[in-house]
Design a protein around this nucleic acid. Structure first.
Lengths: 358, 358
DNA sequence: TTGAAAGCGGTACCAG
DNA sequence: CTGGTACCGCTTTCAA
């Protein structure tokens, strides 16, 4: 591996000084370097396929064009990886590189991950969580421009911008979809009551009923968790050994995996989907919602958008510092100006249909 | 954000020169620097919480202690993220940092990702794929120490070490598990015939039958793909409208998601699992296999081990160059010395049981 | 035992 | 318009 060409090599080949090379290649040639020299420099650069050494640049400029991404589990896990994908797209398109560190749910590693990244002189940080949640922001994050994605500052004085899905609206629109299909008895298998997202989706469910001037039956809401077994047992409780007229005609699930459990229960009980029962998922997990039998209607989380929005905001802050005030848009955010809500997207497939006649 | 302490700051505080600081803090103090000065230096370093600037170090040493990870989809996707987790564990424990770039299945981005990483002066590269597959190794990877994880060199002259799961053995042991439970009619819903892993698992299935001196029924093997719907339709073909005596008593699936499809089919047909039908998955996808109803017996892929093995081999190569020959162990590898097979792990849960009497 | 100085690759300032 | 030079922070060699 012969060493890469340096600015000095280019200078020699073009018969000029290193400074001239630097000026020209950074677009500050005009008015400083003779047109002729400029051409020779540019040509020499091409011939040697010269590109400046990023390490030297970093040392000199005190900017590395690296963004640190800390996540509680996203890198490793099955979920929400597209947040990082979306962030990386933006970073890449602007000549930045991302360095991700996953703490694998070990909060003790938060600080050390941030310190490692800071030590490496990242220009900014993004914290990404698996699932919406409040975050105890590692103090180090305040030392460089930072943004949160899928989480929000848990501290008394939220200081960092955060991009999160509009879960209330997601819950509402999912419910509205079912109401529009004529369903009136819609059970809600919510995620864990202790999670951040589940109660918001429930709030959306209530809003949809309120808009339709319909009463919410409290006994139709249960908190079954995020997993297949939770969905299964929740559905069995609603359906097994219950007179058809007493059964809900649709079940809204905490997520797509819970919906698998519901589908399993429906199959076991001989109910057809969506003929006898409509099933609605949440997340639009790929290779799950799209390949279910029947394919699952679901509310897609705006993962890529969230990541892209976070990275865009971060780079903006890095490249134009000082615009910190009042640039964010929000109406009723937890912390006005800092919260950006990103809408979810309804994906209609085959597991929801008109409510059965009774 | 006041700037970090530099070696010069430490030197001043200790009343010595920068060189002394460098020597002492790198363990080469004895015999070069007076004991007294050493103590003062170490103390000053602690007081200023000094740590050397990695950028300057990189520039100086031409080594960045960064490892580039290129993946076709792993960062973003639901699968195999633990390969990166395992690799990162090892890297972190040895003071390295990983920079991951995902090409999202765009082969055209392979080369550019590698170049970007190389440009950033990574000390080594790992290519990680989602699912076992042959890889057209980006040429840049040959310029620094590199290792492949979950993939192998597709070229005529394989040049890079690779760590892959022992899929043949995995298929064999999964089948043996069912044979030991008394099953004799075991259907195999294999993944796509065009994939790398599926045919190997089928080979393992054949080996297990051969060991038991049993005949393989070719019509029991079908290639249904990796998804829920494939499993569902494959199972319906085997089970729906078929006399009980003609039905397989167990179905081995391409992966856990296909197993979901099979479970859905079984439920729809009123078959109990594992009473009437045993179901075996593959992968041990978390939040899937472990939360299925019933919980899925499956063959766990050695994801973390694979990542850890790859990173270990890579760092070995980086820190002791020249040991390249004959260090790998292999018996019948594609390229002796370069291939490391890592065993899968049988995870017995509740979806497999004794074969029903007939 | 110590400190001065060169150099890693680049940029930016300042005489000429 | 040009080239020399200092500096980013660190290691290493070499002379004192």
């Amino acid at each position: 591996m012969q060493r890469k060409a340096t600015a000095l090599d280019v200078a020699k080949r073009a018969g000029v000084s290193r400074s001239a090379v630097s000026l020209v290649l950074n677009g500050r040639g005009d008015g400083n370097v003779a047109k002729e020299s400029q051409d020779r420099i540019r040509q020499a650069a091409v011939e040697l396929s010269y590109s400046p050494n990023p390490i030297a640049l970093s040392l000199r400029n005190q900017r590395t064009r690296m963004i640190g991404i800390v996540s509680d589990h996203v890198v490793v896990s099955a979920f929400d990886g597209n947040i990082i994908g979306g962030a990386d797209d933006v970073a890449r398109s602007r000549g930045f590189v991302t360095v991700a560190m996953d703490t694998e749910f070990d909060a003790a590693r938060d600080a050390s991950a941030v310190e490692t990244l800071l030590d490496r002189q990242v220009d900014g940080l993004i914290y990404v969580t698996e699932g919406l949640k409040p975050l105890d922001v590692p103090p180090g994050m305040l030392r460089v421009p930072s943004v949160l994605a899928n989480c929000y500052d848990n501290g008394p004085v939220p200081g960092l911008p955060h991009m999160i899905p509009d879960e209330v609206r997601g819950g509402r629109e999912a419910t509205t979809h079912l109401l529009e299909l004529g369903h009136r008895d819609i059970a809600l298998l919510a995620g864990p009551a202790a999670s951040a997202a589940a109660p918001l989706r429930v709030a959306g469910y209530r809003e949809a009923f309120a808009e339709g001037r319909l009463e919410v039956r409290e006994d139709r809401i249960s908190w079954v968790g995020w997993d297949i077994d939770g969905g299964f047992h929740g559905a069995m409780k609603l359906l097994d050994g219950v007179f058809p007229a007493e059964r809900p005609t649709a079940i809204m699930c905490a997520n797509d995996r819970a919906a698998i459990g519901v589908a399993l229960a429906a199959a076991r009980l001989g109910l057809s989907v969506p003929g006898d029962l409509s099933i609605m998922g949440y997340d639009d997990e790929s290779h799950v919602a799209d390949t279910m039998v029947p394919a699952l209607t679901t509310m897609a989380l705006p993962l890529r958008e969230m990541g892209a929005a976070a990275m865009t905001a971060l780079l903006e802050q890095i490249e134009n510092p000082g615009n910190s005030e009042g640039s964010g848009k929000s109406e009723k955010g937890r912390a006005p100006g800092l919260e950006t809500l990103i809408p979810c997207r309804l994906v209609i497939r085959e597991s929801t249909g008109p409510a059965p006649r009774r």
